[in-house]
C-alpha cells in the first residue's frame, strides 16, 4: 500500500566523507508521503549525518538529495526549511532565553511575507501576520500537549518538555517532512509510550515523519518502514517485522543493550 504513495524525499547514492572518515557510503533512501520511516543503526552509523546532509548543514561529497522534485544540494539551509523540511536536534538546541511560545512563533515566521519595514511601521499585514503566528504557535503547543508551558523560558522547562518543544518548533515551520533525531532520548518507558502516540498524531495530521530512534519497541510500534544503517551503509530497508528478523541487522546490533527486543 505504502509503495503506491508519492515519494517525498529521495536520497540517491549519497556519500559523505569527513577527511578520512566515510560517514555515509552510497546511501539510497526514499521517504513516501504520509509515512513514518524509522532510521536506525548503532552509534556512529551515520544517522544524524543523513539529517545534516538533507538540511544542508553539510554538503554531501557525492550523490543527490531530492525533495518533492527539487534538488536540495544547492539550497541554503533556511531555504530547505522554507521548502518544507524541518528537524529536531539530538542534543536539544532550543533558544533558551525565549519562551516556549516564542520559540514556536519564530519558526512560524518562515512562511510570512512581512519584513522589517512592515514591523517598524506596523503595516496591517505585519500586524495580521503577528496575530496569525501567535495563534498558530499556540495551536501547535496544544497539539503537542505542552501549551501550559507556553510562557516559560525554554531553558527552565523540564527535560521532557524541551524535547517535545523541539518537535513543536519543527512543526511551526509548516513542514511537509519532519525529521526527528532521537526524540525519545532519555525518556522513561511511560514517556516513550506517550511520545509514540504524539508522533502518530503528527503523522495523522498530515505530516510525513523520518525518525531516528534507538528504542526498538517504539519503532516497531509506530513505523511503517525501517531503514538500517551500519558504518554509513544501508543494510536493510523493509517493514518492521521483516527488518527485525534480518540476520545482518541482528549482527549489527549485537552487543547493543537488550531493549532492542
Amino acid at each position: 500500500m505504502a509503495s503506491t504513495r508519492k515519494t517525498l524525499l529521495k536520497l540517491d547514492n549519497v556519500t559523505m566523507k569527513f577527511g578520512g572518515v566515510t560517514a555515509l557510503n552510497g546511501v539510497n533512501l526514499e521517504v513516501k508521503e504520509g509515512e513514518i520511516l524509522a532510521l536506525i543503526g548503532p552509534n556512529g552509523a551515520g544517522k544524524t549525518t543523513v539529517f545534516n546532509v538533507i538540511t544542508g548543514v553539510y554538503k554531501q561529497t557525492s550523490g543527490i538529495v531530492d525533495f518533492d522534485g527539487i534538488s536540495l544540494g544547492n539550497q541554503k539551509r533556511y531555504q530547505v526549511t522554507a521548502l518544507g523540511v524541518a528537524r529536531t536536534f539530538q542534543n536539544i538546541r532550543l533558544w533558551g532565553d525565549m519562551t516556549a511560545l516564542e520559540n514556536v512563533i519564530t519558526a512560524t515566521d518562515v512562511h510570512k511575507k512581512s519584513g522589517l519595514v512592515g514591523a517598524l511601521f506596523g503595516f496591517p499585514r505585519a500586524r495580521r501576520e503577528e496575530t496569525e503566528n501567535r495563534e498558530r504557535a499556540m495551536e501547535i503547543l496544544r497539539f503537542i500537549g505542552i501549551d501550559e508551558y507556553s510562557d516559560r523560558l525554554a531553558k527552565n522547562l523540564p527535560y521532557g518538555v524541551q524535547r517535545r518543544l523541539e518537535i513543536a518548533r519543527a512543526l511551526g515551520t509548516g513542514p511537509k517532512l519532519v525529521l526527528l533525531d532521537e526524540p525519545a532520548a532519555g525518556f522513561n518507558p511511560a514517556e516513550k509510550v506517550e511520545l509514540a502516540a504524539t508522533i502518530k498524531r503528527v503523522r495523522d495530521a498530515g505530516y510525513t515523519v523520518l525518525l531516528i530512534e534507538h528504542d526498538m519497541s517504539l519503532i516497531m510500534g509506530i513505523s511503517d518502514r525501517v531503514v538500517v544503517l551500519d558504518f554509513g551503509t544501508k543494510i536493510a530497508d523493509d517493514i518492521p517485522s521483516v527488518v527485525q528478523k534480518d540476520p545482518r541487522v541482528i549482527e549489527a546490533y549485537l552487543g547493543v543493550p537488550a531493549d532492542a527486543s
Partner: peptide, 14 residues
C-alpha cells in the same frame, strides 16, 4: 534573538 542565542538553529528553522 534566535541568531544571538543559536545561529545555526535559527538558520535551520528558516
Amino acid at each position: 534573538e534566535a541568531i544571538r542565542q543559536d545561529e545555526d538553529a535559527a538558520e535551520l528553522m528558516g
